[in-house]
Design a binder for these strands. Sequence first.
DNA 1: GAACTGACTCAGC
DNA 2: GGCTGAGCCAGTT
Length: 108
Amino acid sequence: MEQRDYFEDVYDVVRLIPPGRVTTYGAIARYLSLRAGARMVGWAMNAAHGRDVPAHRVVNRIGVLSGKHFFGSPTAMQDLLAAEGVRVTDDRIEQFDKVLWDPTTELQ
DNA sequence: GAACTGACTCAGC
DNA sequence: GGCTGAGCCAGTT
């Protein structure tokens, strides 16, 4: 049940996401060079739930809040993003290209 | 202990 | 250009 080391790395990257910005599972996976791919990032997020990890800033590659169902309320994730200035319409992030924060490019 | 599933993504058709 | 299949790891059945 113990999470792997890269779980902590994923949490660290997610915590580095600036407010009002979002990133994708694939971007984190590529930044950490996870051979497992985006799926394990999503699994890490599942384990990260309840920790100090802003999982609401992590979405899939098209900017859809695929994990909103895990926030207890269908609009909880959207509300958290809206509180940070990220517009969300129909479970999709508006201007996803602009709010996208890619650690490979931004953080390096 | 094998098979299925999952907060995904890419390549092929 | 939209749909389908395959692949990755871990946890659950």
